[in-house]
Amino acid sequence: MQKEKRPIDLNNKVITIRGLKKSFDELDILRGVDLDLHQSENLVVLGRSGTGKSVLIKIISGLLKPDEGYVNVLGQEVAKISGRELDRLRMKIGFSFQNSALYDSMTVRENLEFPLVRNVRNMTRGQTDKLVENVLDAVGLLRAINQMPSELSGGQRKRIGIARTLILKPEIMLYDEPTAGLDPITSMDINNLINEVQERFNTSSIIITHDLTCARATGDRIVMLLEGQFQYQGTFEEIFRNDDPRVKAFYNYNFTD
């Protein structure tokens, strides 16, 4: 299913990255990445396992430090700001982890309250409850409010993970392999949820994946991460019209069985 075209404001950039480099133990992972994320845009980053997709969004959210390059998020240079400024910036970034990373000693309600009560002071019990219920409703899982993460399915955990980030009303969403390990139907539900979040909360998102169905369903624009750099960008059709054997291999691996 192809995503409908959305008007994107190309002058309004929320993330700008230039010449980003990162290596681990002499292993060059990112070798000069340039990236722009525009307001209200869903950008899909396609790449094989181990190409450094997760490293890229971890640098954007300040979990990892870049070796070289310029990383600007919402007007601030992530690697150069103080801890307090970084925290303030992080409240505007939602991070959906590959394995959801739900706090497994807490109920769903406590998971959602965790970032809320620690970042938004002076909220009454009633206001907190209301917000928790609202975001759970937005991901369609209000009934799971008192369950433990271990009682939920993979797809439900993904939804709760997304709800937990939505509770701080982020401007940017980072999705790390949102459909990995899910069956095709649940994947489709998550793809729809990603688009719903984009429309309802007016977020700009980076969606990292190697699932082409997800890329086609959620991406306004797609870039391919090959050998540490972004190569080929455009819509799904534009990318896969390409003759590069590495791109072809990617396509064939996804759509032939």
């Binding site: 971890k58 959210s61 300040g62 979990l63 925290d87 303030r88 992080r90 409240m91 970034i93 991070f95 982890f97 590959q98 394995n99 990373a101 739900l102 706090y103 497994d104 000693s105 965790f114 970032p115 620690r118 970042n119 937990r164 980030t165 701080l168």
Partner: peptide, 21 residues
């Protein structure tokens, strides 16, 4: 074991990126 499993399942990272300590 508890903190170790929170570390490998990225729960500690999740706390960090949600601006909690």
């Amino acid at each position: 074991a508890e903190l170790g499993s929170m570390k490998v399942t990225e729960q500690i990272d999740a706390m960090e990126v949600s601006a909690t300590n």
